[in-house]
Write a protein that binds this DNA or RNA. Structure first.
Lengths: 155, 155
DNA sequence: TACACTTTGTTGCAAGTGCAACAGTTTCAG
DNA sequence: CTGAAACTGTTGCACTTGCAACAAAGTGTA
């Protein structure tokens, strides 16, 4: 089905990595959708929810930086989670421009359960690699990410 | 600037990989935009252009499978490239439902130049890893991708 | 203090994308 | 050969997202 035609052509090492990152991203997202559908959460909503501490308030801009998305995207994702009764906004007493996003009790519960389900799903999906291989992978990915950040910042 | 707050919290190996893939994807895309801006090509247009052989026609559905996007997305990307004079559609003589997408002469030239510039950029961006490390990475990524495909297909 | 500059969060708008429905073709079982 | 099913590509629609502009609030300098 999902074929990804065999890498028969001669392409450079960099291009191979490049394509692999793209494909893996797409497949991870597809797997997430499936893992989360029981919770009625989109992958975007979940990745935000993941960051919310049940015992702390969160600044919207900090969340945007964390997820690498625009501030307006966070505004809208929080709107959605608020409608679902998962979070609520509280105005920050120290800065009247700012909001604090807090999990509701219901939200904490949903988060907890979704996190577990997602973790289990990830565990299964990454299971093709041994723990040792996953550790190697994490080490390489971190170096690459940090390099890419430097590169983007240099621009 | 692009901070990605230090991974101070205790998260599972799988979750670390998960976040790294997301962040790397975003940064790669940002780097691509920069590498391609001189060509007036978006990363999506480029990734399609990359697949087009100067001497062959291409079936739209095959391209969609290859890029892991919906057929309608390819229709629109081809529309854009056609407006730019980079490709043209030819009806397939063997199947009157089908189209063949072909590079124009101008398109071949632009593709050639963009490919070189992108390759140079990738080379620089992946340069934080040694060749040996990149080979290891490719090996692990391929295994992971194939595992994820099986997983998606099982669904 | 006063005024310019920065910061926080929201909104309008435009662009990209997937899904479902569709028309025109092709294929294949009976 | 015929009709049902599958396939190819396009379109309408909804949803997501980034960017720019904005109001309100905070910061800092003269």
């Amino acid at each position: 089905m999902s074929s990804v035609p065999s890498d028969s052509e001669q392409v450079s090492l960099e291009t191979q990595q490049y394509r692999l990152f793209h494909d893996i991203y797409v497949f991870l997202d597809a797997g997430d959708s499936r893992a989360l559908e029981g919770f009625h959460l989109t992958p975007s909503q979940f990745s935000l929810l993941m960051l919310l501490d049940p015992f702390e308030g969160h600044n919207l801009i900090r969340l945007a930086e964390r997820l690498l998305v625009a501030r307006s995207t966070i505004t809208r994702l929080i709107d959605q989670l608020e409608l679902l009764g998962i979070v609520h906004r509280v105005s920050d007493p120290n800065d009247r421009r700012a909001q604090q996003v807090r999990l509701t009790e219901k939200g904490s519960l949903i988060r907890e359960r979704a996190l577990i389900a997602h973790e289990r799903s990830l565990n299964q999906r990454f299971g093709v690699l041994s723990i040792h291989e996953q550790e190697t992978l994490v080490r390489l990915l971190k170096r690459l990410r940090d390099g890419l950040i430097d590169d983007v910042d240099k621009a």
